[in-house]
Amino acid sequence: MASEPQGGLTEYIQHHLTHLIPVGADHRDFWAVHIDSITVSLVLGVLFCLWFWSKARKATSGVPSKGQAFVEIILEFVDGQVKDVFHGDRRFLGPLALTVFVWVFLMNAMDLLPVDLLPWITEKFGIGHFRAVPTADTSMTFAMSITVFLLIIVYSFKAKGFNGYMHELFTAPFGKHPLLWIPNFALNLVELLSKPVSLAMRLFGNMYAGELVFMLIAGLFSAGAGVAGWALYGAGIIGYTVWGIFHILIISIQAFIFMVLTIVYISMAHDHH
């Protein structure tokens, strides 16, 4: 349940949108280290690895357990997406796509926790601000998208060589004439840089909006007194439940989109000539 501060709903939301940062740092600084986002993402990443490792270690060729069957469904689903798009060696891209899909889904799923749960727990240890959804943090989404961007560059050089990739950057799409080198390079640079920006902002925008809706609904729990207060309380519970069910679809779709676009962008870098 929400424990709304004295400043009202606005202060309540601002409080929950403030990241945990090192002492002395300014949370408004673009380069500020957000300890909460890093901590949650690392914990979820470790849990994901341990989960899949334990299922792989106990895997049998006979009738699989429910846990093994569930993991195999995820593996087959992701491998199918990679097969449909990427036609090169999948030994690296397959595990990458699996990691992206499951990890992003788990980070998104933190949005389904009650808004005040983790902040309430961390306050018991003297931590005043703690945001539970790493993908509602631009620092985290851009970190992932920049990693994908670097892989695009690596695969471009790997598939075409240095000379081939430089030739493509300066001669496509308008031709090889020297006067067209600069326009060609400018367009290719814009196209290249738009990929990590679109990846990061799409995921951030959807998760930030979802987080904000949960905060607005949570504000209804303490928005009034008497009959009106109980009515708002009931509306808050209904709204939280309905939005939570709908949000399961959103977090799944966003994880899927991030994975598919990662595969598509790397495939374009590998196959396009």
Rank of each mutant, 00 (worst) to 15 (best):
T99C: 05
V100G: 02
F101Q: 00
F101D: 04
W103P: 00
M110T: 07
D111F: 03
D111S: 13
V115R: 01
I121Y: 13
I121N: 13
I121K: 12
T122C: 14
F125D: 08
F125L: 07
G126T: 09
H129N: 01
F130H: 06
R131Y: 00
A132V: 05
A132E: 01
V133M: 03
A136Q: 06
M140P: 00
F142P: 03
A143V: 03
T147R: 04
V148H: 01
F149H: 10
L150M: 15
L150Q: 14
L151V: 13
L151F: 15
V154Y: 13
V154E: 07
V154S: 14
Y155V: 13
F157Q: 02
A159T: 05
F162E: 12
M166T: 13
H167R: 13
L169A: 12
T171G: 02
A172V: 06
P173H: 10
P173K: 14
K176I: 13
P178Q: 10
L179T: 14
I182N: 09
N184R: 09
A186S: 09
N188S: 14
V190T: 12
L192V: 10
L193F: 15
L193R: 10
L193W: 14
K195W: 04
P196M: 09
S198W: 10
S198G: 13
M201D: 03
R202N: 08
L203P: 08
M207D: 01
A209Q: 04
A209R: 09
L212I: 12
L212V: 15
L212T: 15
M215N: 06
I217D: 00
A218I: 03
A218T: 00
G219T: 02
G219R: 05
G219K: 03
L220Y: 00
S222H: 13
A223F: 06
A225P: 02
G226K: 05
A228G: 10
G229C: 06
W230N: 08
A231R: 11
A231L: 08
A231Y: 05
L232K: 08
G234N: 08
A235G: 11
A235W: 02
A235D: 00
G236P: 02
I237V: 12
I237P: 00
G239S: 04
T241G: 08
T241E: 06
